[in-house]
Design a binder for these strands. Structure first.
Lengths: 306, 306
DNA sequence: ATTTATTAATACCTTAAAAGTATTGAGATG
DNA sequence: CATCTCAATACTTTTAAGGTATTAATAAAT
């Protein structure tokens, strides 16, 4: 079977006239006659009854015409969908986020992507840093969101945003009424820190920052994630350093205080990671959209400053 | 787009190896490479990632493979259905029957056909003789069942069966107790006759038969069909000549009596009619099945005689 | 009844494209 | 570093699709 024959058949069926059909197809009449004959021979079926004034479809021909319509529409659909997939506009994308990643820029970015690529099905997985890297290597995910990533040979990363830090303290603490807290006052708080897994992590970062500021922090408790940390602060466990985005999490008894006089690097990154060798157009589209997202975000913050 | 390319693509996708795929396809490797390249070029999509140990489908390739499966199964289905239609094993057949045709051999024959051609959709239309011929010429029907057909240039007929006649009389009539009624006794009954339309008809036939037997029948009433005629007999309107098959219609107050000493032609035909120029394989199949039905019927009656 | 016009079919030739052979180039493996 | 295994390329042969000219069949017109 040959699509050319089916295409020719369709035109002849529409025109009921080999000569006219040949004109429509921009070929001469004899080859068209032959193609139709071959199609009939191949199927072992008479598709047209030849009248002196043209050709008429037989019942079998009428049926085939219907089927041919379906075949062509299916082929058209297949090429369209394949092309979309090739441009990263169609498919499934498995993305990992970390526990408190549901707050802040990640959902905004994902929504932004979803608007531009509505036919890409995003599947979210929650996993820690080490697990994300493993899942990337096993191709179970294409992208992971995380912070404080150590460079790796087979994995690249792309910055999403930098976030300032805030100090979560109890509303009952004397400093709860202050506008901001000088960085070096952190030494006075017993600190709840996270996460326990995935080096280098936020704990390492904090210790380094404190040492830059000339003191060693008093780590009273280590927990798995920001939410747990803030919850402990609410119960009177001291203070907890969190990225700005985590302050959307409002818990009774806790206030988030901006810091002052902090060291220059008192910021954490939010980045996304992906395999170096991943040539998938989906990933390409995702990273491009990410860059676009970042510039729009920058412009917006500029706008807000004006 | 070209089915050859899709077929080749499918095999390469299965084998993940151009060389092996070429062997499966019984062609050499270079043309296969070219066909795949052309397919990718045509779609503007990379379908395979080339590794040193073979080829791996990209996401777009995976999607195309699925679509290609559907395309091929649709094409297969289309050819099968078209071939069936070409052999008269699939399609729709419009058949006309007359009023009392629902009794006797017609339903038996139709059931017989339906068993042999389960995918042919039979649509029944009830119409009289003249209307059937008109509908045949307008191609609204392919076959009509009727009796006593005058030959026509553009319409052929094929005998289904011959039927003896019986006399429907009231159970109250003195002759109701007799085993059979001599033909010439019909002169003593007022006759209810049918049908009023479509010459030559059963009325003309009956009059001729009576004249052969040496008398003129006493026609008391003309009605449209056998059912009405027998109903009138039940109400005391005299007698009514009916074909054997109509005796399945049992109405209180009526008995059907066989005739004796009747003229040789005291039988009516049941025939089916069709257009001379109808080359449809459905009709061919129908007529063949009809002949088969007739021989089986004959054999069965022989069997019953033994 | 003969001519003319219109249609699909046939015969024969040309062109395009698919398949074959031989070879190259790239990347892995020992 | 040689070797092996792939896919890719260069070039030739074969196949099949397309073109031109003509024929055969049938209906319409004279």
């Amino acid at each position: 079977m040959d699509l050319r024959k089916l295409r020719y058949f369709k035109v002849v069926a529409d025109e009921k006239h080999i000569g006219r059909a040949a004109k429509v197809l921009h070929i001469s009449q004899p080859p068209l006659t032959r193609q139709i004959q071959q199609l009939e021979e191949e199927l072992g079926v008479t598709l047209f009854s030849r009248n002196p004034k043209g050709m008429e479809l037989t019942d079998a021909g009428v049926l085939l015409r219907e089927e041919v319509r379906n075949i062509f529409s299916l082929i058209e659909q297949a090429t369209e969908r394949t092309q979309k997939a090739g441009q990263g506009r169609l498919g499934r994308m498995d993305i990992a986020i970390f526990g408190s990643g549901i707050m802040g820029d990640i959902p905004k970015m994902l929504l932004f992507f979803k608007e531009r690529y509505p036919e890409v099905n995003i599947v979210l997985h929650t996993m820690g840093k080490g697990e994300q890297i493993k899942a990337l290597r096993q191709k179970r995910i294409s992208v992971g969101f995380n912070r404080l990533l150590a460079p790796l040979a087979d994995i690249s990363s792309e910055l999403v945003s930098m976030e300032k830090l805030r100090l979560a303290i109890s509303t009952k603490h004397p400093m709860a009424s202050q506008d901001h807290i000088p960085f070096e006052k952190i030494r006075e708080f017993p600190l709840v820190m996270y996460p326990t897994a995935g080096r280098p992590n936020f704990i390492d970062k904090t210790i380094r920052l404190c040492q830059l500021a000339g003191f060693t922090p008093d780590i009273s408790q280590e927990v798995g994630d920001a939410v747990t940390g803030v919850a402990l602060v609410a119960s009177g466990f001291g203070a907890c350093l969190v990225p700005e985005s985590a302050t959307v999490l409002s818990i009774p008894g806790v206030v988030y205080k901006p810091l002052s006089d902090e060291p220059d690097e008192a910021e954490v990154d939010l980045s996304c990671i992906y395999r170096n060798d991943d040539e998938s157009p989906l990933l390409k589209a995702f990273l491009e959209t990410l860059k676009e997202f970042r510039t729009i975000k920058d412009n917006r913050s500029l706008d807000e400053l004006c």
